[in-house]
Design a protein around this nucleic acid. Sequence first.
DNA 1: TTTCATTTAGTATTTTTTACAAAATGTGAT
DNA 2: ATCACATTTTGTAAAAAATACTAAATGAAA
Lengths: 258, 258
Amino acid sequence: MQTEEDFRDFILNGHLHYIPNIAIDCAIFGYQKHQLRLLLIRHRNMNRWSLPGGHVKRTEKLEEAAYRNVKIRTGLKNLFLQQFKTFGGPDRMKFDRFDKKKWTEITGLPSWEGNWLMDQTVTVGFYAVTDFSETVLQSDISIGECAWHDLANLPPLEFDHEDIVRDALHAMRLHLYHYPIGLNLLPEKFTLSEIHALYETLLEKKLDISNFPKKLITLGLLKKLDEKRSIGAHRSPHLYSFDKVRYELALKEGLVLS
Amino acid sequence: MQTEEDFRDFILNGHLHYIPNIAIDCAIFGYQKHQLRLLLIRHRNMNRWSLPGGHVKRTEKLEEAAYRNVKIRTGLKNLFLQQFKTFGGPDRMKFDRFDKKKWTEITGLPSWEGNWLMDQTVTVGFYAVTDFSETVLQSDISIGECAWHDLANLPPLEFDHEDIVRDALHAMRLHLYHYPIGLNLLPEKFTLSEIHALYETLLEKKLDISNFPKKLITLGLLKKLDEKRSIGAHRSPHLYSFDKVRYELALKEGLVLS
DNA sequence: TTTCATTTAGTATTTTTTACAAAATGTGAT
DNA sequence: ATCACATTTTGTAAAAAATACTAAATGAAA
């Protein structure tokens, strides 16, 4: 959707290609070095920030719609993208903050009454975790601004997106105890400190520096490499990588972390 | 929806009161004495059995729609009703098994092309667990048959409902390890054997008869009563009841069961 | 060479889980 | 009444896991 013309067509005729009344929203958590951020966008015709999301094509699955939307904005694929909850209800969208003038400007219509985009929408929530340093944020005419925000200091969000973020965090943290994570968040080779910091940040909780890495090793998730890193001062830590077979197995069968 | 007239009106004009393209489906598991069953319905215009479900009123939340639908069929409220996953995709509904003659008979229309009920639908899955001996199954003109089926021996189901059942079971069992259950499944006063049998049946897994009840007592979920049951021969077991305060707390905060 | 912060291995302690034995007990048979 | 028995319940020992803590290893910088 690159041109003004495309955007107008989407508003006026999108219901032919997209399923009405259904949307997906993605809480994309960005991690790097003890910092956790959230990807937010600000549509050209909205005042508040909101989660990246969009409609579902009539030809695609919900997951595909989520992947497509994430990829549009972050350029990343193969994310740890998880459906966690669906949000509905008559009160979840408030359009009273909408700008009537902008609407008329774009569409040529006097009001949005009867437009497919303005009907009650149920949204399927997904979350993803990625390394925010690797993402190159995209923008196009239908998106407007797009930026990482510190999770601890979010601006007021559009609609019920604050609820969605809260539930996404909760689901992600619960998930963390049952499934492995890190394949898309850490470099191919990493130190025990790095994966320790990752878990501490995502869980927002202190984990014993000595015992926690041992747990991951005992589970067989990590492979010790014959290399060492030597950045900065002090003892150089060993490098590890994920045991892909065990990792995939744990994704399928689940694991138990304390 | 009691009369033929109501039903016809729902088909023709339901989209005024219900959100199109969205539905809810409920996997209602019925438990009693080591048996686990699933509530299925067979619509008058479908050949296969399917999960009870329905559309969402424009004035209600998803949860309310689920509760309303369950109540219509089982008469029960206050169920342990949980949203677990949303199902979409272009392939999930196959209408080719539909009976064109019946459709025309009911609606007076030659075909269902363009009808709101026949468009692609995304369905939000809920599950519930209840004591099937307490339920009095309801029927009305829009439902058709309604019956409990042995979980181990289900008939072929409509659409993707077999997937939904599989995922519901999986979610229910995962949930069982993190939240208390039993308040609506066991009588007010029950024996340790009864709650042990409940968990064994729901998890489809042997649990140590001696250690498992101890775990629940240690968690503080159960209160020992000064009464005994004396049905049949042999030693009469003590009666227990849930500690409501702890139970509610565990529902909110979660617990860990091994 | 020494100092130092960090990494990593080691170990002791505590807690939890699991397995199993045995005692308790109400009922029905003798 | 007494005994036998199936079931319930308590008890305990062994195994495993989690936790806390100590100390050794190590490489860069002073």
